[in-house]
Nucleic acid binder design. Sequence first.
DNA 1: GCCCAGGAGTGCA
DNA 2: TGCACTCATGGG
Length: 273
Amino acid sequence: MKFDFNAEYFNPEHVLECGQIFRFKPFKQGYFVCSADKACYVHSDGVKTVVESEDSDYFYNYFDLARDYSQIVNRAKERGVPLLTRSSEAYKGLRLLNQNHEETLYSFIISQNNNIPRIKGIISRICGGLGEKREFLGEQYCTFPSTPELAAAGSGFFRSAGCGYRDVFLAETSAKIAAEGISHLENLNTPQLKAELLKYKGIGGKVADCIALFGFGKRDSFPVDTWSEKIYKEDFDGTLKDRTKITEYFQSLFGEDSGYFQQYLFYGKRSNL
DNA sequence: GCCCAGGAGTGCA
DNA sequence: TGCACTCATGGG
């Protein structure tokens, strides 16, 4: 099955390269993208962006296609912040993904104090070791392991996959979720969800914000990492040092647009816009 | 060899 | 509460 969408506000490169997703690779004329136990092929000619998969409904929601991003970009430009104006114009094809809860949670535990290429490698090895092998469009891929499979693997597996000291975080948190489930995380507001996420080993403020934003659709989240800190100092003349307070500063400034604007800024800053 | 990466846990004052 | 220290690992 395939469907297409206006490419102006759906650019595969912008969506995938902005740091919210770690399981994708160049494929044919676009990208091969994996999410949970599914895969799709997304490509664009600049006019139409096409998504091919075995589950159109899943990927229509995954790419957040029910939302009008032209209004978000317009609101970003109205802020009068030079970096935000440049970034939202240059990357107006960026969209926030609606990712799987558990894949997002484990992936961002791995992301702490780590760089994106290495994060991709680690997650790829975890999926290769524990996931189910499948094929789509003649391309082999592996599903993201279930929580019970991760919990059964133990810290030794995570260490061998290259997780480093994060091995025990993944082992403990997957065991806790295997025992308790995560259904209690649904239908919470953003502060409530963040407070619950902070109870897991390996999840601090920044990672909780990323999980809330990318895995639970909490668009009023504003993750603050080393890049956001740099943006705060250089582009907002900020003087606060506490990352929690920097997060609160941006949330009070951007409100319900926090998550979108954070991604424009993050991607723009990393791209040296 | 050093510094950095989408940071967080721990110990100590 | 605040702050310094430490934690694997690979790239530049």
